[in-house]
């Protein structure tokens, strides 16, 4: 019976085929849309909307208990006129740059050691975990642990005094810009180490042998091979550290002891005093400066080129 009805079947089947194909294409398209929708929704919910809200609030008029929805530029004018804010912003940028540079100078060698010197994977992993160990405790505990280490009566000062190196406790070891920088470097070192470690680990050992075979010494290998190949890791690490240090407030508060400040801390203070428009204005400036820094880093680092 099938043979007689087959012409019609063919006739009906013909248009059906493209239709099912387009259905498939549609299904594939909506799968793609779904796949894209999630990160987009994520971005929207956790990045774009908050930034827009902050931007909008920064133009509202502050009151004792919050703000009135009245447009004003006053918040920005106050910041622009405030020497303290300008100085704090400068200090924040300086601290972020110092932290980024020093974490690179130290972190590169940690990553180098882990990736290229430690021979087997298990030991690499073990050392990496040890390097992570401080992050198993809460930030507050780590910050509080600085006092018995670096305080006036802390380990370091006691050691220096007992060894006769100093005759008085060194105050700058705690509650100072110096202390904040040291703490931030310690805190963010791993954010620099990790991406560099992964960049260096990805280098085919044959590349290094080929360089050696061509007569490259340690320094030439570092300059010609390792640094260029680690560049994506270095730039990503630098972006991590720079962005984190630009937004830093907790370390500044606890280790700085009120002796030094950052824009982030100022924002936090404004928020706790319920002065949201000023907080939002300062935050907008901070975001702008941070994004500018990241753009420079990516430009200079040419990460988009891949290598």
């Amino acid at each position: 019976m099938s043979s007689s009805s087959s012409p019609e079947a063919v006739a009906t089947a013909r248009p059906a085929r493209p239709a099912s194909e387009s259905r498939l294409r549609l299904a594939a398209g909506s799968a793609w849309a779904l796949l894209l929708a999630f990160p987009l929704a994520w971005l929207l919910a956790f990045l774009i909307i908050p930034v827009v809200v902050v931007l909008v609030v920064s133009f509202f008029e502050p009151t004792l208990s919050g703000f009135n929805r009245v447009f004003t530029l006053e918040n920005y004018l106050l910041l622009a006129e405030s020497d303290a804010f300008i100085r704090t912003l400068g200090n924040t940028i300086l601290n972020a740059l110092i932290t980024t540079v020093v974490t690179f100078l130290l972190g590169f060698w940690v990553a180098y050691y882990l990736a290229l010197v430690v021979p087997d994977l298990r030991r690499k992993f073990a050392l990496f975990i040890i390097a992570l160990a401080p992050f198993f405790t809460s930030f507050l505990i780590r910050a509080i642990a600085w006092i018995p280490m670096m305080g006036r009566e802390g380990l370091l000062n006691t050691a220096l005094l007992n060894l006769g190196i100093t005759s008085q406790p060194l105050d700058f070891l705690l509650f100072s810009d110096f202390a904040v920088r040291v703490a931030m470097i310690q805190l963010y070192l791993l954010f620099m180490v990790s991406p560099i470690f992964f960049s260096l680990s990805a280098i085919d050992p044959a590349i290094l042998e080929a360089a050696r075979d061509s007569g490259a010494g340690w320094w030439a290998i570092l300059r010609e091979i390792l640094l260029p190949l680690a560049r994506p890791g270095i730039v990503i690490g630098a972006v991590f550290v720079f962005v984190l240090s630009m937004g830093e407030f907790a370390t500044v508060r606890l280790i700085g002891g009120g002796k030094t400040s950052s824009v982030g801390l100022g924002i936090q203070n404004f928020v706790t005093y319920i002065q949201f428009p000023q907080a939002a204005a300062a935050a907008s400036v901070l975001v702008l400066v941070t994004v500018a820094g990241v753009v420079v880093l990516f430009r200079y680092g040419r990460v988009a080129e891949g290598l």
Partner: peptide, 19 residues
């Protein structure tokens, strides 16, 4: 106390903290 000039004080206090 929260003074009449509380908002002014807050921004000055912030400056004090960052001085």
């Amino acid at each position: 106390s929260v003074m009449d000039e509380h908002q002014y004080l807050v921004s000055k206090w912030n400056e004090f903290l960052s001085a």
